[in-house]
Amino acid sequence: MTDFSKRRTMMVDTQVRPSDVTKFPIIDAMLLVAREDFVPTAQREAAYVGENLSLGHGRVLLEPRSLAKMLDVLAIAGDELVLDVGCTLGYSTAVIARMAQAVVGVEEDADMAREAQDALVAAGADNAVVHEGPLVEGAAQHGPYDVIAIQGGVTDVPARLLDQLKEGGRIAAMFMDGPLGEVRVGYKREGKISWRLAFNATAPVLPGFDKEMTFNF
């Protein structure tokens, strides 16, 4: 029988800490949340690999390093409300739930949303809820949010999502340019977002986050 607790410790020691992520709340959350419970049953053995885990339909569970570094730059506090966009089967939402006051995961795939909610309940994450709906729409009815995390690639972040971020809040998104991407953190000041580069990473672009193409004739 697989000892997943040992794999969690190894994940933190070989993928998270070497990436200069040392904040206790992040380390603690990633040691405690059973990643294998938030992937399809057939992929439990692959839950702790150091790469994005394909969940089908162009969706992935971000590699532990990318998620940890994203949480590191967002510096979520225990009294904050977080929006977790593209939560798939709920792993990132469960990790954030251990750091924040409350978290709302957004998932547009109905089956994933249902499984995520069930997994969060089973994990005892009673300060987390999954909102089923288009990722680009967020979940305005529960906001505004102190922090927004986007769990996948984007080429653009729509204004209707940025509008759900509180003044003074932070957002992290992985901007993709072909196969290469960089995670940027945005800070909202006087209603505008200023972005800065945090680190390089890669993931498929999430549904609806492609910049609309314009053609000049």
Rank of each mutant, 00 (worst) to 15 (best):
K188H: 02
V106H: 00
E137Q: 01
E212K: 12
M112A: 12
E115I: 05
V157W: 07
D156P: 04
N200F: 04
V136D: 00
V157Y: 04
A94D: 13
I150V: 12
K211R: 10
L197N: 14
E167F: 06
S194E: 15
A203L: 08
R160N: 11
A102N: 13
R196W: 03
V154L: 06
A94T: 12
A128F: 05
D109M: 04
Q141N: 10
I148P: 00
V157E: 13
I96V: 04
V121H: 15
G105C: 09
A173F: 00
F215R: 01
A122K: 06
E108S: 08
G105Q: 03
L120C: 09
V130H: 06
P204M: 00
I96A: 02
K192W: 10
A159I: 12
F175H: 14
N216S: 07
M174Y: 08
A159Y: 15
G90E: 10
R196M: 09
Q151D: 14
H142S: 05
G186D: 01
T214A: 02
E182I: 03
K211E: 06
D146R: 00
E190M: 01
I148W: 06
Y187W: 08
Y145M: 02
A123V: 04
V183C: 12
M213V: 15
A149E: 00
E190N: 07
Y91L: 04
V95I: 10
P207C: 04
A122I: 08
L161I: 06
F175T: 10
S92T: 09
R196K: 15
V147G: 14
A125E: 15
P158H: 02
A119V: 02
A173M: 03
A97D: 06
T202W: 05
D118L: 02
L180Q: 15
A149I: 11
P179S: 04
A173I: 00
V147T: 12
A125Q: 13
L180W: 14
Y145H: 02
W195Y: 10
V106A: 00
G191Q: 02
D118H: 11
V183F: 02
I171P: 03
L180I: 15
G168I: 02
R196A: 07
D126C: 15
A110V: 11
K192C: 04
M213P: 07
P134Y: 09
G153R: 13
Y187T: 06
V154R: 01
M176I: 09
L165A: 08
N200R: 12
R114G: 11
R189K: 01
G124W: 14
A116Q: 09
G191K: 02
A100R: 02
E182L: 03
D146K: 03
I148V: 01
M112Y: 08
V183P: 00
K211L: 13
H142M: 12
Q164K: 07
E115H: 12
A198R: 00
A149C: 06
E212T: 10
D210E: 12
Y187G: 09
R184K: 14
V185Y: 08
S194C: 14
G191N: 06
A159D: 15
M99Q: 11
L180H: 11
G143D: 06
M174A: 15
Y91N: 03
K188Q: 07
V106M: 03
I96T: 03
Q101F: 13
A201R: 11
